[in-house]
Write a protein that binds this DNA or RNA. Sequence first.
DNA 1: TGACTTTATTGGAACGTTCCAATTATGAAT
DNA 2: ATTCATAATTGGAACGTTCCAATAAAGTCA
Lengths: 349, 349
Amino acid sequence: MPKGRVTVIDIAKAAGVSKSTVSLVLQGSPLVNDGTRAKVNAVMRELGYVYNRGAANLRQSGSKSKIIGVVVNDLTNGFFAELAVGVDMVVQSAGFVQFLSNTSENLDRQREVIASMREHGISGLILSPARGTEAADLKPLVTAGIPVVLAVRNVPGAKASSVVSDNREGVFLGVQHLASLGHHRIAFLGGFRDTAVFGERVAGYRAAATTCGLDCDEDLIVDSQPSRAGGAEAIERALSIGDMPTAAVCFNDAVAFGVCDGLRARKLEPGRDFAVVGFDDVIEAKTAVPALTTISVDPQGIGRRAAQLLLKQISAGKAEAEAIVSSVRLVVRESCGAANGPLAGRKQA
Amino acid sequence: MPKGRVTVIDIAKAAGVSKSTVSLVLQGSPLVNDGTRAKVNAVMRELGYVYNRGAANLRQSGSKSKIIGVVVNDLTNGFFAELAVGVDMVVQSAGFVQFLSNTSENLDRQREVIASMREHGISGLILSPARGTEAADLKPLVTAGIPVVLAVRNVPGAKASSVVSDNREGVFLGVQHLASLGHHRIAFLGGFRDTAVFGERVAGYRAAATTCGLDCDEDLIVDSQPSRAGGAEAIERALSIGDMPTAAVCFNDAVAFGVCDGLRARKLEPGRDFAVVGFDDVIEAKTAVPALTTISVDPQGIGRRAAQLLLKQISAGKAEAEAIVSSVRLVVRESCGAANGPLAGRKQA
DNA sequence: TGACTTTATTGGAACGTTCCAATTATGAAT
DNA sequence: ATTCATAATTGGAACGTTCCAATAAAGTCA
């Protein structure tokens, strides 16, 4: 069994200085002679000293750990993996470390994870909330002065900052583009109806439909799991209604990939036989075949902004709720070149 | 600015008991009268008490946090997301929380992340090592008695436990299956040559080629980034050699998806025109079109086993290196029904 | 009621580190 | 050599919680 931990007392003894000097070295204080500093550092290396952050936090005034908690609702969606990568880019250079936790859309798990993060004294939290999260869930954090930034999904009533994409505008652009290609029957596929994101994206869908004088058939709005599997299911349902759609804007890129899978299962070629637009522009959107037309929200960009906002609040020592709506843009690739295909052409023939 | 944190002293005063009684309640000790316990719990709820894990760890003998550190080399690969979900299933019921960190194959980042985890007193570490990780990187952890379990990639010489899939056997099965379908020119696509996983999988490839009397052309082994984009690139290179392959076993499912993308970009249909076998059996393997034939290693299963192994070591208080080779199995789906297609039939004609 | 046993509660010190006022050491000027 | 100023180092107490021996309270029996 290895010996217990090496402490500043051990280092002090071995270096022939006081514990206070060791502490000064640890703090990078200019009040230490360079020779003494070098000696202490050498001893720490030699004895394998590992800082005890918990002990330090006890004494340091107003101090927290160097941890940023990041809690996401579905880690198996590549979007959130990329968001985490974006967060990492920013917090890393500020000397923080991101501890990422996944809730798999489970509210109890979310509460547990956040509670544990608080016990360990996180400096701040970036949260993509699980379905059903309420402002009351965030209140204790806000009251305790822990900076919180909501990402991707907002929580109405929560006095927390947020970084969300312009959901309404994004879907508006997607539908508008499909309409400009001549599509009249455009579906909206995927997503949970009880989330704010879904509501906003459908609002953009309806607005574009009205603006472009399109059919506004409720059957064209098909909810499903916002995953690839959910997308395959949603297109199945959309193509089994009487007056089939010829194109779709999908809740996110994962759903869009699933829609392409579902089309191929019916011997239809995405892009040629049916126009598909995604939302997110994950890395794979560019390399998929056909390359996916999508609303680019840059998940890494959202992660970076959320992290910047959080770091700003941490260093300002106050939490003033700010809302950032990340702008979106339409990236046209091959998945919606279907306007002249057999399906789309039927209305005109 | 909110008031400072609520401590056991505050709770003790408000409940009219001593701090020691509050501590006993926190520990769930049977030595406290039920009425007193109820009173203390009510006060804690009322005042919003948040336990200070760092302070508690200071005093508790041999104690660590309730954190399991999980460090992965590429979070954007769905395999690792699923592995993390599997870890979560196990550590959750043991009262631990998983803090997941991503290294993006960067060794310096890995060191940084592990160091930070140690400062915060993690109870144990599950590591899928970044490329280039050496036993020396793990030595300080092992010496300090911190349980470490390596997952997916082994680190030769490290006295740590590991859970890896049977790489050699898996690729052997895949190649053998393709040979049984009549393929003679079988490629191995994707992966970094300098990793042990690559070496093992190629060893299985070679063994199967020998056993099945296949061509053993070095040009049929094409390395690339083990990602979807890497897969698209690898198939491009494989189809530009003189005597083209008619089938491939891919380093992992992400590479396989990219290979399918690349085939389609050349107007070839995966499954019909070229047989594809993946490795991992991620969730999307089943729903992709064509559904992917793959070597099932069950990433969530690996995560669960790694977590079980780690928890076992944590509660035993000793770290005895154990190696678990997770068995694999071939799951036949649609992506390799190509033996009678035009490409495969050319050799016989 | 007193003695004994069991239950419940408590005060003080420990844990590793930081902070700050006090002390010591060093260097420069006279 | 002495004095003063500056640089460097130090000891003690604080932080929030736990542990353990000591103390107090409650219950039982003669």
